[in-house]
Amino acid sequence: MNIDPLLFQLSEVSFAYRNTKVLEGIDLQLDKGRFYGLIGANGSGKSTLIELLMGMHKTVTGDILYKNKLMESYSRQELATQLALVPQNFTMGFEYQVRDVVLMGRHPHIPRFSSPSTPDLQAVDEAMQTMDITHLQSRPVSALSGGELQRVVMARALAQETEVLILDEATSNLDIHHTIAIMQVMRKRVDKQGLTVIAAIHDLNLAAAFCDECLVLRDGQIFDHGPVEELFTSELLHAAFEVEATIQRQGDHGRPQIQFRYQ
């Protein structure tokens, strides 16, 4: 049996807000069961690319195929069972409890007027355990710290149990312990359960340590992409981020470690 690993296929995609071009000439293929990092300077188009992958905007030119079907041909509900997003910012309108918010991740799986089933509740408990927020479950979300809130949002996305998890700088509010914990959880799910992760990451060392492949965006175009072991070079960092850095590798094909030159 031959399973097509291809998930996303973007050809000649461009996108603009009103008259401001944000993305141009994006050709991209993303496969199932891989951990992709999306890196690039502020304003390089990472968030917009993520929104396009989530089907939140129509492209200006070019097509996005998901599982060989046009993105537009899916209903929101269908997409919600396939793709989950962990946004960068998160605000909550009302005083819902942590558990209720995580349960909202099950929304696309629960038919209208039905109560959550046992598997729904199990997924919620499991996600809360994974994100280390079980002890917070009956707290109102408004009473949480930024990092706790970020873990709640992450748990909600995990509870959604989708094939693809898309993160928009989701670890930016977290301490190093929880950052590593989240990255490890995702790495494990990619390896064991065939999850696909697409994560915009600012911390290049984090991207280098956990991703399989990185896409480098610059000025709305894909500047470079490839496996992290080969991709990171001083020249690339200079060209994409305008920083000076040396790259160290452990062994021949080890993961690179970046040391920035601050002065």
């Binding site: 939140m56 509900q77 269908e78 919600a80 793709l83 997003l85 605000t91 309108g93 918010v101 209208r112």
Partner: peptide, 23 residues
């Protein structure tokens, strides 16, 4: 009442509600 649960989800903000399958 028919849309009560969608309204709950919309408390997460429009962007997030969209990604959870609410139009």
């Amino acid at each position: 009442l028919y849309f009560a649960r969608d309204l709950n989800i919309m408390a997460l903000g429009e962007r997030t509600a969209d990604t959870l399958g609410v139009e």
